[in-house]
């Protein structure tokens, strides 16, 4: 048995979608009951670390629009998806509210074994703008400082695993790993929690060496875009490895035994310090009934996979 977790935004039910569109009186209670339902579903599936389904989040960056000096602007496409996020403009010189931005947008009923995912600084800077920090490097570093305050606050309130979402590192052909590393150092230095950097929306086969050098506890891979054979070529003896085996972009439900076999094969070759399984990106890309089935399968894969 290995451990497991999910990350990203979960799909809203049809009832909740309608309620958000009509802004019905029971909207808040629907958000709460559906959040609790998803937490129960994860617990019942034996998921190792439980996530808030982030049902109120319009995209993974939106809570940061509440920071002083930050303004939501135009809609922009999320990479090659038919989904859009709102570009935030960071115009103040220091954007922080003391580390309460993410925490205040998470459900208080999460159990002790909880995890949270937030964008890493390079991705954040790639997808947003700043009139204050004209040089990309300065923007990345200042975002890292802001995120560290957020993460300290999350760790203090009991989050054991912090996932850092890094789609831009996967998607962009050119990545300045020096800047990525400097920014991650700000986030992870002395932190009393595990940090796992998740790459998705692109094949990172040629970047794995650079990724292994980054100052994070572990790496997560979407194996629909980065082939398992590429991961297996590398040693993860100093790193945790998360295999994004559940495909959030297809309604076809994974066959647990096939997945267990694949996870065992990857782990046998990569020999990670610790192994996890997860989804490959936000579950909200499939409707709720499919997401629930996929969470159940994820738990089954984790239970069936050999311990490392």
């Amino acid at each position: 048995m290995i451990s497991s977790y999910t990350f990203g935004i979960y799909p809203r039910s049809e009832e909740l979608i309608e309620a958000t569109r009509k802004n019905t009186e029971n909207l808040d209670s629907l958000f709460q009951s559906e959040t609790e339902e998803y937490i129960s579903i994860q617990k019942n599936a034996d998921i190792g670390f439980i996530s808030d389904p982030l049902l109120k989040w319009d995209d993974i960056f939106r809570p940061f629009s509440n920071l002083s000096g930050v303004t939501p602007t135009a809609l922009n496409r999320i990479y090659e998806m038919n989904t859009f996020y709102r570009v935030l403009s960071f115009d103040g010189s220091a954007f922080t509210d003391g580390g309460n931005t993410v925490k205040s947008n998470l459900d208080s009923s999460l159990p002790k074994n909880k995890t949270v995912a937030i964008p890493e600084p390079f991705t954040f800077a790639e997808l947003h703008t700043s009139n204050e920090f004209k040089r990309k490097e300065d923007f990345v570093i200042n975002l890292a400082k802001m995120l560290r305050v957020e993460i300290d606050s999350l760790v203090e309130s009991g989050f054991e695993v912090i996932q850092l979402l890094a789609p831009s590192i996967a998607y962009n052909k050119e990545v300045d790993f020096g800047v990525v590393s400097d920014a991650l150092k700000i986030i992870t230095d002395g932190l009393k929690a595990k940090t796992i950097l998740h790459t998705y929306f692109g094949d990172v086969s040629t970047k794995i060496e650079s990724l292994l050098d980054l100052p994070v506890s572990g790496l997560g891979f979407d194996i629909t875009t980065t082939p398992a054979s590429s991961i297996e070529k590398h040693s993860f003896s100093d790193k945790l490895l998360t295999i994004g085996i559940i495909n959030s972009f297809n309604t076809a439900i994974e066959k647990p035994q096939e997945c267990i076999k694949q996870v065992d094969e990857i782990n046998a070759q990569a020999k990670p310090k610790e192994s996890y399984v997860s989804n490959n990106f936000d579950l909200e890309y499939v409707p709720k009934e499919f997401a629930i089935s996929k969470i159940s399968v994820l738990g089954e894969i984790a239970r069936g996979a050999k311990d490392v």
Partner: peptide, 17 residues
């Protein structure tokens, strides 16, 4: 049809299998 998937914010479209 599988259900609705977000386009942005509270805007959704029906997506099929």
């Amino acid at each position: 049809f599988a259900g609705r998937v977000r386009s942005w914010d509270n805007k959704y479209y029906k997506k099929a299998r």
